[in-house]
């Protein structure tokens, strides 16, 4: 629970951060029509994509952390992102013309990865750190398959290879962005309506069942919804790590642990984190651009280590 003074500091930080990040979008713009076009055609869509991707990954991260009842997981670490990316690439190689259906293919891949992790975790009764090892193994396997596929695929797909593995907001597909945002709103509304069920899940599956929650059905719903969210990001921006880990953690510091308050908070924090990382990616070594996935990993890895250290001390 955050007290009043801390609440206030968080909110001030968000407002200042958001204004600064938005102001940075006007950097180095040439005068006149060209500058306006750069802003409207390039910077704003990219800003929207980054904010959308961050918010979406953060929400998926929150749901996965609830599903596994540990703050140590996120879509990238569990292999959901790699699963999505792999099926998306396979789909792209086999049916390049049917790109509209790519998110569906990515969602199938992501949820398959998630069903696999969940099945193995239940089979071997894995929790916390052990779960991470499972995710790492699956991730390595999927990434290897992905690189193999990119190696043998025709040129066009090959050129985008760094995009799938490291993530970037530079190749966004404008036609996919608006429907994706609409879907994110739909998922968010569902998450808010089921907020008390998500809270209940934290009690443990059996106890949630004793309180009348249809456990198996709700588990499937979380898996499909999280995989769907991740797929929407992966097909537009590739795999972006650690936002789904950091945002829920920061949000729980800010608003506490009930999902009714957490859901909007993770969306906001995730969006800000992604825009922040992307702005750094564009400006840090300008004119050279760093893939944003590298930057989120640079920011997220120390955060993750700090999280592990906290658990170790407890």
């Amino acid at each position: 629970m955050a007290d009043g003074g801390r609440q206030w500091r968080w909110q001030l930080g968000f407002v200042v951060g958001a204004i600064a990040l938005f102001a940075l979008q006007f950097r180095d713009l040439p005068d006149g029509v060209l500058g306006q076009e750069i802003f409207w055609q390039l910077r704003l869509p990219r800003l929207l994509l980054a904010a959308f991707a961050g918010a979406t990954l953060a929400l998926a991260g929150l749901w996965l952390q609830t599903l596994f009842r540990t703050a140590l997981v996120e879509p990238g670490l569990l292999g959901v992102s790699s699963g999505s990316a792999l099926t998306a690439i396979i789909f792209l190689v086999l049916w390049p013309a049917a790109w509209v259906w790519m998110p569906v293919a990515a969602m199938v891949g992501g949820s398959l990865a998630l069903f696999m992790v969940l099945g193995l975790a239940r089979r071997f009764q894995l929790q916390g750190e052990a779960l991470l090892l499972l995710g790492i193994a699956l991730n390595a396997l999927l990434a290897a398959a992905m690189q193999m596929l990119l190696l043998i695929s025709p040129d066009q797909a090959l050129r985008a290879s760094s995009f799938w593995l490291m993530g970037s907001f530079a190749y966004g597909e404008a036609r996919l962005l608006i429907p994706s945002i609409v879907l994110l709103v739909v998922f968010t509304v569902w998450g808010m309506r089921r907020a008390s069920a998500f809270d209940l899940w934290l009690l443990g599956e059996r106890e949630a069942g004793h309180l009348g929650l249809p456990v198996a059905q709700f588990r499937r719903q979380i898996i499909w919804a999280s995989a769907g969210l991740v797929a929407l990001v992966v097909v537009q921006a590739g795999s972006i790590a650690f936002i789904g880990l950091m945002a829920p953690h920061m949000a729980s510091r800010w608003v506490g642990c009930s999902h009714r308050a957490l859901t909007p908070a993770v969306l906001l924090i995730g969006a800000l984190l992604a825009v922040f990382a992307d702005t750094l990616a564009q400006t840090l070594l300008s004119p050279l651009e760093i893939p944003v996935g590298i930057l989120t990993a640079l920011l997220g890895a120390p955060f993750f280590l700090a999280l592990l250290r906290l658990r170790w001390q407890r």
Partner: peptide, 29 residues
Amino acid sequence: AQQRAYLPQQHQLRSALSVEAVVRMGAFP
């Protein structure tokens, strides 16, 4: 769930939810 309440020996709850939020879960059914 509206007629039977069951309290097991061990709890899996590890979240920093408030006491009120935990008690309120009883209203879920």
